[in-house]
Design a protein around this nucleic acid. Sequence first.
DNA 1: TGTATAGTCACGGGATATCATGGCGATTAG
DNA 2: CTAATCGCCATGATATCCCGTGACTATACA
Lengths: 151, 151
Amino acid sequence: MSAFSGNFSNKLDAKGRVSIPADFRSVLAPPGSKARIVLRPSPLHPCLEGCTEAHFQALTDRLDTMDPFSAEYDDLATELHGQTIKLELDDDGRTVLPLSLIAEYGFSGTVKFIGLGRTFQIWEQAAGDQRLADLNAARRARALTRSSGAA
Amino acid sequence: MSAFSGNFSNKLDAKGRVSIPADFRSVLAPPGSKARIVLRPSPLHPCLEGCTEAHFQALTDRLDTMDPFSAEYDDLATELHGQTIKLELDDDGRTVLPLSLIAEYGFSGTVKFIGLGRTFQIWEQAAGDQRLADLNAARRARALTRSSGAA
DNA sequence: TGTATAGTCACGGGATATCATGGCGATTAG
DNA sequence: CTAATCGCCATGATATCCCGTGACTATACA
């Protein structure tokens, strides 16, 4: 597998450590080698967004296509680099989330990992569940609309 | 055969394992090789929907044409990947359904596989039977309505 | 045609590996 | 010297693998 899929709930211990789901670890690095993740605030949601270093590189490549003196360049560069944290996983597949982030996102006890393919998100448990539920409701509404239109 | 057809009832054992019907296995992978299935919640029914990795790939291909920073991308990616489970079949053609799913869909003892061609569904036995019965009833009603001109 | 044989399949059980998580102790910084 | 951080090990739970068994089917053979 080479994409982040599924959602997982893992515990944040007293020291701010969390296990990265094993499925995600296998995407982040070939088994055996040190895995690293790149984390930054989601531009859309109250959650963290994580990806591989390679994917982050691909995102920043986009900067090279932009006018380096434009406001857009400045905004995107700041967004991408200004709040990005690179973390290394320990031998148990865990990483330590900085206390500031834990406080900022209201993480308490359990966090939710949601796969988005090339990236994944880390939510406060309840908020993450809500996000999925909202999407499902919308999907269901779309499906029903379609079928009643066709019938 | 290259489509999921027919319906089958198989048992869920104490460990949450279930045999994938042999007919479906032959669609999922050439005999001998490891078969994988992609499962996600049905948008319309209280059941799981399964398909091949290739079919899922076709669904996610659409993401590559979208702006990865847009809300649309985020929604679709979460919808597609966020609740997707990729399972590998063991040498006996079985797979393990996560406990959370078993609870969520009320699976107990026996589950029903219903082929939908490119995909298939996994229902709690009684609900799946009901689904088929409902469809037949609706079909009969339509036929009667047509023949009598109006009902 | 009736019977024996081999194959496939669903299903159960038990041994083993993997994972998430708690805790301890060493190491480092202040 | 104290406190925070990091690496390592212990543990329970879960998943994975590998085996055997019985039902049913298809094939071979007399």
